[in-house]
Simulated assay, not measured.
Amino acid sequence: MGEYKYELIVYWSAEDAAFVVDVPELPGCMAHGPTPTAAVSEAQMAIALWIDVARESGRVVPEPKGRRLLLA
């Protein structure tokens, strides 16, 4: 498994007492960990699983945009 180039948003969640990583280009793809580094590592695994399930389901897997997403 390589590194995926999707945008990752990392933030601290007091509710979960963990760092959370959201992958906005892949709906519902999130991960968490006790440190930012661990959370990003978990996110890479979550991305791989998300892509596998999407392909098995015949869904389109978006290409990474390769740039920061703009928030409205």
Rank of each mutant, 00 (worst) to 15 (best):
A43Y: 08
H32Y: 09
S57C: 12
A54T: 03
R59G: 03
A17I: 04
A38F: 02
P64C: 10
T37Q: 13
V40I: 15
P34S: 14
E42N: 15
Y6I: 06
D22W: 00
K5C: 13
M1N: 07
P64Y: 09
S41W: 01
A54W: 06
A38K: 11
V53T: 10
Y4P: 00
G33E: 06
R67Y: 12
Q44Y: 09
G33S: 10
R67D: 10
D16S: 08
V23R: 00
W50I: 04
E56V: 03
T35Q: 11
V10Y: 01
P24E: 09
E25M: 08
E56I: 00
F19S: 00
V40F: 02
A43V: 04
P27Y: 14
A38I: 11
A72E: 13
D52R: 05
F19G: 00
A39E: 03
G58E: 10
A46K: 01
E3A: 06
P64N: 12
A14Y: 03
M45E: 15
T37K: 09
K5F: 06
E3C: 01
W12Q: 07
E42P: 00
T35H: 06
L26V: 08
Y4T: 11
M1V: 07
R59F: 13
A46E: 12
I9G: 00
D22Q: 07
E63M: 11
R55N: 08
Y11L: 08
E56H: 08
L69A: 04
W12N: 07
A39H: 03
D22A: 13
A46D: 02
W50M: 02
M1D: 11
D22G: 01
V40R: 15
P62G: 06
S13Y: 06
A72W: 11
V40Q: 15
E42W: 05
Y4W: 15
E56Q: 13
E3Y: 05
I47M: 09
V61H: 06
V40D: 02
V40Y: 03
V60D: 13
L8T: 10
V20Y: 05
Q44E: 13
P34L: 14
